[in-house]
Amino acid sequence: MSMQHDRWAELTGGQAGEEYARRFARLAASGQDIHGEAAFCDALLEPAARVLDAGCGTGRIAIRLTELGHLCTGVDVDRSMLAVARRDAPDQEWLYGDLAHLDSLVPESGFDLALAAGNVIPLLAPGTGPAVVRHLAGALRTGGLLVTGMGLDAEHLPLAEPTVTLAEFDHWCTQAGLTLGQRFATWDGAPYHQGGGYAVSVHSRPTA
């Protein structure tokens, strides 16, 4: 998320970390599975894969993927969210910075999977989407995967209206050299139907 007027900062003032963590702690305590994104990604990966969690927030997904045996790097522009991640998993790699400048934060490629969950794409600063997708694609090894989850209507977004359509997002991915492989309506793999309010997409960086 961009340091210049990103939508997440406008919504939260950059102070949401502790409350965000408490919300998921309450969900876990109530018996809800809070690891759907991690389970989805784990099923796509070989053991000990390298994962880039872009817009990692409090680290919930990256920490779980590390517990599952993967090597995770988290990046976020919200210091309050990163403070929780660093407290909960001090030995993991947490990077502060703007995804629109991801190439300077993570200059090397070679990640097996880059993840942008939690409405990261719709909450980017206006106009930065194509650059962010290009940098995420550039961080992948050949054959690597970009996994995204995002709301497409107000019901599935913390916004009054959507900021990007699937057609626009797929165009950004095509421009970045990525190919759509799979699309679902939920993290547990429910089929996506045209016009649905939420999409989980798996794009790949082709091997040739």
Rank of each mutant, 00 (worst) to 15 (best):
Q194S: 15
L105A: 10
G69L: 15
L45F: 07
H203E: 02
D6Q: 04
F24D: 09
L68E: 09
D78E: 13
S30T: 02
V120N: 05
A199M: 00
Q4S: 14
T148P: 00
E67Y: 01
R86Q: 15
G31V: 02
G177H: 03
V77G: 08
A139D: 03
H171G: 15
L68T: 06
A114F: 00
L180Y: 06
D153H: 04
E161N: 01
R205K: 15
S204I: 02
G17I: 09
L113S: 04
V84F: 01
L146N: 09
D53C: 10
A100C: 09
I34N: 11
L27G: 02
G197S: 13
C72F: 03
L140A: 13
P47F: 15
G59E: 08
A137I: 02
T66M: 11
A21E: 15
F184H: 14
A125P: 12
T174P: 00
E18Y: 08
A131Y: 01
Y96N: 03
I61W: 02
G118P: 03
D103V: 06
R141C: 11
A49M: 10
L166I: 10
I34A: 07
P90W: 02
E161Q: 14
G151P: 08
G31K: 06
L157A: 08
L180K: 11
T179N: 04
T58W: 01
A62C: 07
Y198V: 07
N119W: 01
E108M: 09
R7G: 08
T174G: 11
V132I: 03
V132G: 03
G138E: 08
G17L: 10
F111L: 08
D188Y: 08
G189H: 05
C173V: 01
D91I: 00
E46R: 15
G17W: 08
E46N: 10
G138N: 12
L68N: 10
L136E: 11
V120I: 11
P107D: 13
G195H: 07
A29Q: 13
A83Q: 10
G55L: 09
V84S: 01
A190G: 00
A89S: 13
L52R: 12
C56M: 09
L146Y: 11
S104W: 14
T174A: 15
F40D: 07
L166D: 08
D103A: 15
Y96Q: 11
R183P: 00
L180G: 05
L152P: 12
L157E: 05
M150H: 14
G144M: 04
D98I: 07
H135P: 01
G197C: 05
T174E: 15
G17V: 07
G13P: 04
H203W: 12
G59K: 07
A89W: 01
F184D: 03
G118L: 02
V120M: 06
W187T: 04
D42P: 03
L157N: 05
L71Q: 15
C41F: 02
G59P: 13
A85K: 01
A139W: 00
E93V: 14
R141S: 09
G55A: 10
L113D: 09
R183A: 10
F40P: 03
D42S: 12
Q4I: 13
E155M: 06
Q175C: 12
T12W: 03
